[in-house]
């Protein structure tokens, strides 16, 4: 997938919300869906199981209109968090420009967070993507829970690379747009850095 297409003057950004089951990935997309004006978003495609958990993926297309002469479009995806849907996760992850890892702050779910984050890195590596170079940011969701793990302890087990990290309660909308802004910045800045590096060698 071409992130910035200078020929067609389009920017297409695929962002995948990853994380363990029931961590709030779909809730993030649902909140964004309610806050984006109708003309700027497509229908949210959501395939859920009988238990209301994501079966395949959710997709929310956003059309940000023309920015600096480029038609700018975002595609926000979620993956199913349950362990047995790994093939689907790989499929959705393909071609992603950035990942938001939605971690569940609930105290007893820290092992699930770690396992899912390892799974993310494995799947990126399988696709020839170096997780250390790939735009990833964290959202520690459900901060309103009384038994939420401390941010510091979650940092220690998940964010050892000191990636951008946001806290929030997606069900209330807290931290949702901050996270989206964070990953967008990360993805676009990575493109800028790459261009600068390539350009400075010649110019």
């Amino acid at each position: 997938m071409s992130l910035v297409n200078y020929s067609t003057r389009e920017i297409t950004c695929k962002i995948v919300y990853y994380g363990p089951g029931r961590s709030g990935k779909t809730t993030n997309l649902q909140y964004i869906h309610t806050r984006v004006p109708e003309g700027r978003r497509g229908s949210m495609v959501s395939l859920a199981t009988d238990g209301d958990r994501t079966l395949f993926f959710d997709l929310l297309p956003l059309d940000l209109g023309s920015i600096s002469g480029f038609q700018t479009k975002f595609q926000l995806y979620t993956v199913p968090g349950q362990i047995y849907y790994d093939a689907t996760r790989k499929l959705v992850l393909k071609g992603a420009d950035g990942v938001v890892f939605v971690a569940d702050s609930k105290g007893n779910r820290q092992d699930d967070n770690v396992e899912s984050f390892r799974n993310l890195q494995t799947n990126l590596l399988e696709q020839g993507v170096d997780p250390r170079e790939f735009p990833i940011c964290f959202q520690y969701n459900k901060r309103d829970l009384p038994d939420a793990a401390s941010v510091g302890s979650m940092d220690r087990v998940l964010n050892y690379r000191v990636l951008p990290r946001f806290t929030g309660t997606a069900a209330r909308g807290d931290g949702v747009f901050e996270t989206l802004r964070g990953i967008t910045e990360l993805v676009l800045r990575r493109v800028a850095t790459r261009i600068d590096r390539a350009g400075s060698a010649v110019l």
Partner: peptide, 26 residues
């Protein structure tokens, strides 16, 4: 609602402008 999206759009616009106009040869 509109403020959240407007703020987001404003930030993204600045970043996009920096990206697409950051390489003179392009």
């Amino acid at each position: 609602e509109s403020d959240e999206f407007s703020d987001f759009l404003s930030d993204v616009s600045s970043t996009v402008a920096a990206v697409v106009e950051g390489a003179p040869w392009r």
